[in-house]
Every structure is written in structure tokens, then in C-alpha cells.
Amino acid sequence: MPDVQPIIRFENVVKTFPGNITVLDNINIVFQPGEFVSLVGASGAGKSTLLKLIYAEEVPTQGEVYFSERPVGKINRKHLPFFRRNIGTVFQDYKLLPQRTAFENVAYALEVDGRSTAEINEEVPEILEIVGLGDKMHKFPKQLSGGEQQRVSLARALIHRPKVIIADEPTGNLDPVSADEIIQLLLEINSFGTTVLLATHNKGIVDKIGKRVVLLSKGQVIHDQNKGKYILS
């Protein structure tokens, strides 16, 4: 897809942390709309930092990250919350609000947008139904299993109909069956055209997906393969 405008583009990106620790070293990579990309590599390879640069949780030390050709680093801090509504995020630790039910957790993402209660009451159950939690909407996170919590988190990521879903080790805390269900959901979301970036070090999962694989090691991209497998560096 060479003529399509890339959804995300890294241009000579370097990220160093205090103490002169280089986490990302001259990254140049392009993600196209609708792609499903598995980011693999050992712990500390720089996967999470690379993802954080996309949703502007971190700022590059050098170079620039573009989202729809818009430089992320130059977004006014005031406008960050609005920018982030373009990106759905899912994490290993689910990051749910513990004092809210599944419904309320998903609804929150719409509330902050100022959507009407009627809209919320219509859309939230719909999306929870899609991730298979229609009957557990009013449970609190601690009353749900890990896999169910991750599905709530996924529902929340989807509610804004984002262009990109970023999943950072979403299966890290899950048993193989739940992990598989989450990956299936991500694939399904991807099939509707949403770009999915999945960071993981689970070889079995990556091999099963059979889509683009980017291997990071010591802050550098050392492999980038379409329909790839997890190659041990």
C-alpha cells in the first residue's frame, strides 16, 4: 500500500532517559491504516516506549512521530486529551477504574467527551455485547476474571471508534484460553479496518496471528516481516 498516507510514521526517533539510557535508537518505521502489527522483543527492548510515543505519554528526545502525518510531539498539551480519543489503549494491567462497574468504566470514555446520557445508554451495552460481557455490565472489576477485565478495557478502547488500537502486553496476565479470546477480538476489530499495534513477547500468539511482525532489540528494529513469525534475536 505505498500510495496510502501512513497512519503512524517514526522518523529518526531517539529516546533517552535520564542517566543516558538509550531506549530507542534511531527508529524509522511506518504503519499503514488497517494493518495488524505485532511488536516483539525481550523485556526492555523498547516496545512499550515506542507505543507511548504514539499516544504522547512520552516525547521523543530526537526525531518525530507522526500520526496521520501530524507531528505528535508538537500537539499542545491542552489538546492531548482530544488527540488521545483517536487511539484506544489496552494494557497488561487493564487500567480499569476500580470503583466503577464495567458499564461505568466504558461510559466514562464517552462522558469525558460530553456525550448525552441517551447515547451512552445505547452505545455502551452494544460494545459490551460485542466483547461478550453483555450479562456482566454491572459488575465491578474485582468481581470479574482477568480475561473479562481485559475485555472491559478493550470495550473502552473501542467506544470512540478509534483509528488505532494500541495493545501493550494485553495477554501478559491471562491464561492461554483468555489470551486467545482477546487476540481473536483484536483480529476481529482489525478486520473492520482498525489499525492494531500489539506488543507482546508471547511467541505462540505471534506465530498464530501470522501478520506483520516487527522485532525490537536494544532499541533498534532488527526485523520487519510481513506474515512473519517470532524470530528469536
Binding site: Y55, E57, K78, L80, P81, F82, R84, R85, T89, K95, L96, L97, P98, Y108, A109, V112, D113, R156, H160
Partner: peptide
């Protein structure tokens, strides 16, 4: 929770 709220797009004032 602040981190989570900001990640899902809540503005500071919210």
C-alpha cells in the same frame, strides 16, 4: 486513576 482517566481522553479540568 488519573493516568487512566487521561488515557481515555479526559481533559485536566474534567
Amino acid at each position: 486513576e488519573f493516568e487512566v482517566m487521561r488515557l481515555v481522553g479526559a481533559s485536566n479540568i474534567y
